[in-house]
């Protein structure tokens, strides 16, 4: 395997010829924001967050699918790229219903992290407030499509790693959405192995483990009664719910 030498942000970087600009940058400790990219599955270049400038080309290139080449000069964090990236994140917030305070992924969300990284303190675009389908038919997992950013990570892990291909895309443009099987309820899916890879791959709170979503906490009132009888009558009867 031959080695290519390129310049990323005025820093000389060596990379294997099969590597992408993103991999070369990551190996050199240079951070490029990503969203649809997930190590281990194929790259699709759809989110456009990893766009970089390449000297001599007026076209911006997605670092996750652009192979390294000898001598190219790459800039990953120009003012123009920062502006575009901020707008991409703004677009995602305007497109879905991303209300961090009531989301299961609050604090563990890549979209939230990106908004913070881009310094997105408000959204200038008009919120679209979609009314998308929520599917709670699966025993262990749930999907709230209002939080989906259409990165297709779930589709790719399910197909390429688990080999089940339960997930897929349906619709087009603003009506794009992920579906299970041929748009059947997730709980009735014949192909889903309930492996949970999709839930772990999801960057937002769209796919979640049941029991962790807001409003699913159940109180054990019997315990209060148990404590009272234990204290007052020295009797320990406990029937949990």
């Amino acid at each position: 395997m031959s080695v290519k030498t390129l310049i990323i942000n005025e820093q000389l970087v060596s990379a294997g010829e099969e590597q992408t600009v993103l991999e070369a940058a990551q190996d050199a400790g240079i951070h490029i924001p990503t969203l649809c990219y997930l190590e281990g599955v194929s790259a699709v270049g759809a989110c456009r967050l990893c766009l970089v400038e390449i000297a001599g080309s007026h076209k911006l290139q997605p670092a996750c699918v652009t192979k390294v080449a000898e001598g190219v000069e790459v800039s990953t964090n120009t003012e123009r790229l920062q502006k575009y990236r901020r707008m991409i994140v703004e677009m995602l917030f305007a497109e879905g219903n991303h209300i961090c305070s009531v989301c299961v992924a609050n604090g563990n969300c890549e979209l939230q992290d990106l908004a913070i990284e881009m310094g997105m303190d408000h959204v200038r675009l008009e919120y679209q407030f979609p009314d998308r389908h929520v599917d709670g038919s699966h025993d262990r997992f749930g999907i709230d499509r209002n939080r989906c950013v259409l990165c297709t990570r779930c589709v790719r892990v399910c197909d390429e790693i688990e080999g089940a291909h339960t997930w897929d895309m349906a619709g087009r443009g603003t009506n794009s959405h992920v579906i299970t099987d041929l748009n059947q309820p997730w709980g009735t899916s014949q192909t889903c192995t309930s492996c949970g890879k999709c839930v772990n791959a999801c960057p937002t709170g769209a796919l979640f483990d049941r029991g962790s979503s807001v409003g699913e906490m159940k109180r054990d009132r019997v315990k209060l009664e148990f404590l009272m009888t234990a204290r007052e009558h020295k009797q320990w009867f406990y029937d949990s719910i």
Partner: peptide, 22 residues
């Protein structure tokens, strides 16, 4: 363009809708 957008990339999927609204 909004109707013809496939929805794969964010700038076209959301951008055409936002431009149409504006």
């Amino acid at each position: 363009c909004m109707d013809k957008s496939c929805g794969k990339c964010i700038p076209c999927r959301v951008g055409t809708v936002q431009l149409h609204r504006l």
